[in-house]
Amino acid sequence: MSYRILQKKILIPGQTTLLVIDAPHVASKAKPGNFIILRTSEKGERIPLTIADCDAEAGTVTIVFLVVGKSTAELNTFEEGMSIPDFCGPLGKPTHIDKQGTVICVGGGTGVAAMHHIAKGHAAAGNHVVAVIGARNKDLLLFCNELGNFCPEVLVATDDGSFGHKGFVTEVLKKRLEEDKDVSEVVAIGPVPMMEAVAKVTKPFGVKTTVSLNSIMVDGIGMCGACRCTVGGETKFACVDGPEFDGHQVDFGELRQRLGQFRPEEQESMKLFQHKCQCGEGK
C-alpha cells in the first residue's frame, strides 16, 4: 500500500512545504497533537512529522515540513499524484483538550503548522484561543489567515517588524499574560530554544504550559527509547508518553544535546543527496 499526495503547496520556497495525503485510516483516528512517521523510499529512514490538519470525511491528512536534511529534501521532490511508500499513524497521545477558558497557542517556525491543529481543537471545544506566531519577516509567516478563522486573536511577531510586533513571540506572550490574569493554559510548539523560552516566560505567572517535544525517533511506537527525555526527573518516551509534556518539567538542555547525536551522519547524508541532485543521478 502507498499513500497518494493529493495536494502540494509550497509555503516558503525551498524551505517549507505542505502536503495533503490520502490516508483514510489515519485521518479517521487522528486527533490534535498526534503525529505520523513516514519513509520516502525503500532505503529511507523513518521520520516523524506532526499532523497539521486532517479531514476524516475526505480521508486526508495534512503535513507540513521544513527542509532540514536528506529525508525532508527528498520528500520535497515529491509532486502531486505521486505516492509516499510508508505513512504510519496516528501516533502519540492526543492533546488534552477540554473547555477551560482562554488558551494561548504559541507557534514558531514550522511548529505553527502543528500548533494550528491543536488551536483548532481548543477552539472547537469552546475555548477562547489566542494564537501567537512568529517569523523572521511577514513573508515567512505560516497559517496566519487560517488561524484567524477560529482564533479571535492572532498576535504576530516578526524579527524585522514587517508585521506585528518587532521582536520575539515570547515578548508578545509576556505582554498578553500581564494583561490577562485568566489564561488557563499556554501551548508552545516550535524549535527547542523557543519552547524553552516560552516555559521560562510563563513560569512566574504560574500558568500551565504544554510543549510538544521533537526528539529523534525511530519506530514511534515505544519500542526503542530513542526519543527518551527527562520530564520532572523521570525518563519518558516522547512517542508514547508524549509528545506533549509540562514545559516547566522538561530538561531542555538534554533534549538539545540528544537532538545533535547524529549531526555528522546527517550532514554526510545531505551532502551525498545534494551531489546526486546536481549531477542528475538521483531524483
Binding site: K43, S71, V218, G225
Partner: peptide
C-alpha cells in the same frame, strides 16, 4: 537500548549507511 541499536541496523539497514538513510552511532 539494544532495540534501538538493532532496529537501526537491521530494519533501517544502517550497516549500509549512507546508501540507506538510517544512521548508526
Amino acid at each position: 537500548s539494544a532495540n534501538e541499536y538493532l532496529t537501526r541496523v537491521n530494519l533501517g539497514r544502517a550497516y549500509d549507511f549512507p546508501n540507506h538513510d538510517t544512521p548508526i552511532f
